[in-house]
Design a protein around this nucleic acid. Structure first.
Lengths: 394, 394
DNA sequence: GGACTTAACTTATCACGTGAACTAATGGGT
DNA sequence: ACCCATTAGTTCACGTGATAAGTTAAGTCC
């Protein structure tokens, strides 16, 4: 019972960055006495600290509370199709250090697992002093992560041609491992510290090489029965249309994925792809903006598909916010936000459309590793990490 | 705090129909002592009763608990496009009486409000003895019911050409009024007593003249930011396709709504529509089954559209169950369940598809009035009805 | 510097869930 | 027929934890 309130208080402190006891009282809905007790516990545990004070128009100054940055650490790993990036975060969610291993998704999974181990080992070498305070390793994986009946997790990245991999195999250095889909990881980051902050109902749509989504429903990330909800990229938007790497026809990803967009441009007479997808995409958008009819046609089609997809989500889910991210998504929001908004509105009912705001991701690059780290911090919230430590110690 | 447990216990008793204290202990997760206390309270309130006993292999017999049918009553109103049906339910969810008023959705809203009042008045006339134990009137309305900032509700049935109507205007006879969309009402009925029972994640898709949906997420009906989530009928499935009564092109309803299906058959050379849509639809399915190429083509197209729609929902939501209802839906599940299943699988990823079962609605007719009545019973669960009564009495 | 304000802590109390002991109700063995 | 084993359900003393009210802390303002 106390657990619930502890979780609520600590969540609010981490979420807000800085708070006061009075604010917690108001937001969590407990009496000042209880807040005092719970905050006292959290300070004793070392995860919360008084980080300053503000005068209060004639009275005792307010003690400002915040997470104690050195109270706990977590690793967040962005396991992408192009390599592994592992970042070390402190409890204030700042990146302390970072280790990258270039790779390729055509490699066997065992190689990727090795890459993670190498990166984690390098970080441990440099930060052995804080290692005992690590809550775990969060993994953002490039495919649906299912929860099995026994509570274990399995990665099913079929579209990459990988076999089903038990997440336990990623376990590195005896750290507790927590895994989730990359899109859900970024959605979690947006929900805690990004553009979806404070929204009870939001959609986080990500456009990169692949197309993914995270849905926030009643303030929590939606998982579905076997936690593979959110495979939006493979929802059919043009039945019988282009073939997708998932094998079906007409998926959103087959129209709004980076490769699909650039291939379509080439097919319509655009230049051959440049060294990086980013450069090509910028070239496409520049060409469209400067009156190139072919380029404009490609971009319009993409905007139309994305508008139809997002419009459908608005009708289905009635979100108050739609966050668009991923590197392609960010470029589109930079250059064509108005067109996207119009397309989205055209494909949805007036009222739910008017209730949703369309915003870009809050993070310049992506926030996948951050989202993975948040996942690894979550055991801290309900005290299960602390009690496990006690158990081990006793 | 007690409220939560009271709610859990009473919900389980109503849901199960009959239970025992031992079962409640197991399911709700409280000690036998607490179950005794809470059940004692509920019996004292008159909403729960010991309805029998079972011998227990050499020991004191188990007392079987169930809802006390006469403990409370509620009205459920199905406000459809063709009239109003108000049903009176007791706490065991049996229909005690029923009153219908034929109508037409081209009538002004005020007329419909009058029809509800007339039906409710007729029922009160016949059941004045139980009137004081009515928890309220649940309204299932033919359009999205939004919750306003002040907690009041407004009906926005734009597609019927109705203006926005405050739900308060439907208030009849000084009864507390609770409103929801018709599709959500039926979804609620399926969730409590129908085909979605026990499912934590389910989709209830309804096909009649219109196409609607209710989504069950984490065991609760999903509402969205302004509670107009679930407008699945107006999700675009064929961008740029047929015009829908909502004004957009290519909506699911424009392909899978009863009128759309029958018009398409006529367009392709089918016979002119018969007296009732039901008869025409049966004729269409019969013709398709007996080798009529035009009819089979129409049916195949409908199955394809519905499969694409449901497949998308499976990818997005990862439900464990998909319930298909509504009169058209029931006919299709009778005649073409296999085809529907195949279409759905074709339009979704293998894993989430294999995790979802496809089942018809549990109710022969529709269960909209039942769902509306459940809505009106809900204040009983958290004790807010009881405390209101006390307040009024004191 | 005393009156006043506001924050945060302490204390007495109360609500509620729990385990353990106890009562209730029945079947079966002798 | 009687009593004990068995299972169901209740009562009770206790512990946890939230709370309101009262207290102490740390300032501002006149």
């Amino acid at each position: 019972m106390r657990q619930q309130h502890r979780t609520a208080v600590l969540t609010e402190i981490l979420l807000a960055g800085t708070t006061t006891r009075a604010d917690l009282m108001r937001i969590v809905g407990l009496s000042s006495a209880s807040i005092t007790n719970i905050v006292g516990d959290l300070i004793a545990e070392g995860v919360v600290a008084e980080v300053g004070s503000r005068s209060s128009s004639g009275g005792r100054p307010v003690a400002v509370l915040g997470p104690h940055p050195q109270g706990a650490y977590a690793l967040g790993a962005d396991v992408g199709e192009r390599g592994v990036a592992v970042e070390l975060f402190d409890l204030s969610m700042r990146v302390i250090d970072r280790e990258e291993v270039e790779g390729d998704h055509t490699e066997p999974v065992s190689r990727i697992i090795d890459d993670i181990s190498i990166a984690v080992a390098a970080l441990r070498e440099r930060h052995h002093d804080i290692w005992p305070r690590l809550t775990g390793l969060g993994l953002a994986l490039p495919g649906p992560v299912e929860v099995n009946a026994d509570g274990s997790q399995t990665l099913h990245a079929q579209s990459l041609g990988w076999p089903a991999v038990p997440v336990g195999h990623f376990a590195a250095m005896n750290l507790p491992v927590f895994a989730d889909n990359g899109a859900k990881a970024q959605a979690r980051a947006e929900m805690w510290f990004g553009a979806a902050r404070g929204a009870e109902h939001a959609v986080v749509a990500l456009f990169g090489r692949g197309v993914g989504m995270g849905t926030i429903i009643d303030g929590a990330l939606h998982r579905g029965a076997h936690s593979s909800a959110g495979e939006w990229g493979h929802v059919s938007i043009r039945p019988g249309g282009r073939e997708c790497r998932c094998g079906n026809l007409g998926c959103i990803e087959a129209y709004a994925g980076a490769d699909a967009i650039l291939e379509e441009w080439e097919r319509r007479g655009g230049p051959p792809q440049q060294s990086s997808g980013w450069d090509s995409m910028v070239a496409l958008l520049d060409a469209a903006a400067t009156g190139d009819n072919e380029a404009a046609g490609v971009v319009n089609d993409v905007v139309d598909v994305i508008g139809a997809g997002l419009g459908g989500l608005i009708n289905l889910l009635n979100p108050e916010r739609v966050v668009v991210g991923g590197w392609v998504g960010m470029l589109l929001m930079d250059r064509c936000q108005q067109a996207l908004r119009s397309a989205m509105d055209a494909y949805s009912l007036t009222r739910p459309a008017s209730q949703a705001t369309l915003v870009p991701s809050h993070f310049r690059g992506d926030a996948i590793a951050l989202g993975a780290a948040i996942l690894a911090f979550e055991p801290l919230l309900d005290g299960s990490y602390r009690s496990r430590r006690h158990h081990v110690a006793g």
